[in-house]
Computed example of a mutant assay.
Amino acid sequence: MTSIGSGMGIAVLPDVYCYTNQIVNLFFIGDPSKTNEFVIVDAGMPKSADKIKTAVVERFGENSLPKAIVLTHAHFDHVGSLVTLLEDWDVPVFAHELELPYLTGDKDYPQGDPTVDGGIVSELSPMFPNHGINISGHVQPLPNDGSVPNMEGWKWIHTPGHTPGHISLFRKQDRTLIVGDAFVTVKQESLYKVMTQQKEISGPPKYYTTDWQAAFESVKKLEALQPITAVTGHGVPMKGNELSESLRKLVENFNEIALPKHGRYVNRPLLH
């Protein structure tokens, strides 16, 4: 699956660059007009390391190396190229402590749930990789004080539901939010909408979300921050009134917009 935006990047802000890799976004945090230091948030789809490195060179120049990689969570489409990237980049990786078992080879995620409503992507989801990876020599937990190493001014926020250790990143100074998959701006269950990147506010991808009450609380937590700019793991960036109105709508109508009508975890969360 590949969206029409694959391989393209958007400078959402001078120091927030959204790069689309097939169906998922990763982010380069750093202003190349001021510094060659940057952090990458998430690590894209499998077999995409060369494309990601090319995008880094185009953004920051030859021989550029991130100071760190920060993960919103460890689903295959967010860590797919991480092992390969770390073969060339000897850099630290940071994730929430509850996500570490999926990054040290100790646990696998449950398979995707094809019984949730929404479209063919949900139906195909059991075929998606669900295994953990082992980067135990690189990964470490995010600091308990909410700071993000090498990302001055940013704080990490625990936003579980989609996964136990899912995080989002927020910069209070300009109210910029890196959401991950706590909510997205495309209906990720629909193949047509994924491919065309039709913009609409949606909850976390249904086929991988295992705790819907926690997911709802996470969306409320993010809406309360009143972000001005949001970039999500799937879909296009949102800003201003469109973002605030869309988030308000999502909170007020979460059951109708986000919650599946049926599925393994609708009435009972997975106990990880």
Rank of each mutant, 00 (worst) to 15 (best):
F94S: 03
P92H: 07
V139E: 05
Y109R: 04
I69W: 09
H96S: 11
G119E: 07
V139L: 04
L103Q: 02
T72V: 11
F76I: 01
G80V: 07
V57G: 00
P126E: 09
T115S: 15
G80D: 12
A55L: 02
V57I: 14
H75D: 15
H73A: 05
G132M: 11
N144V: 12
V139Q: 02
P126W: 02
G61S: 09
H73E: 15
D117V: 14
D108K: 09
P101R: 03
E87Y: 11
H78K: 10
L71D: 13
P141A: 10
G137W: 00
P129A: 02
P114W: 01
I120P: 00
M127P: 00
N63L: 13
A95Q: 07
P114G: 03
V79K: 10
G118R: 08
N144S: 13
P143Y: 03
V91G: 06
V83P: 12
T72Q: 15
L124R: 00
V121Y: 08
S125T: 09
F76L: 07
F94G: 01
L82V: 00
D113W: 14
V56E: 11
W89S: 03
L103N: 02
Y109K: 02
V116I: 11
H96D: 15
W89C: 04
I69C: 15
F128T: 05
T115V: 01
N63V: 06
F128G: 06
G61L: 05
I133R: 09
P110K: 06
L65T: 15
A55H: 12
P110M: 03
L98P: 00
P141G: 02
S64G: 13
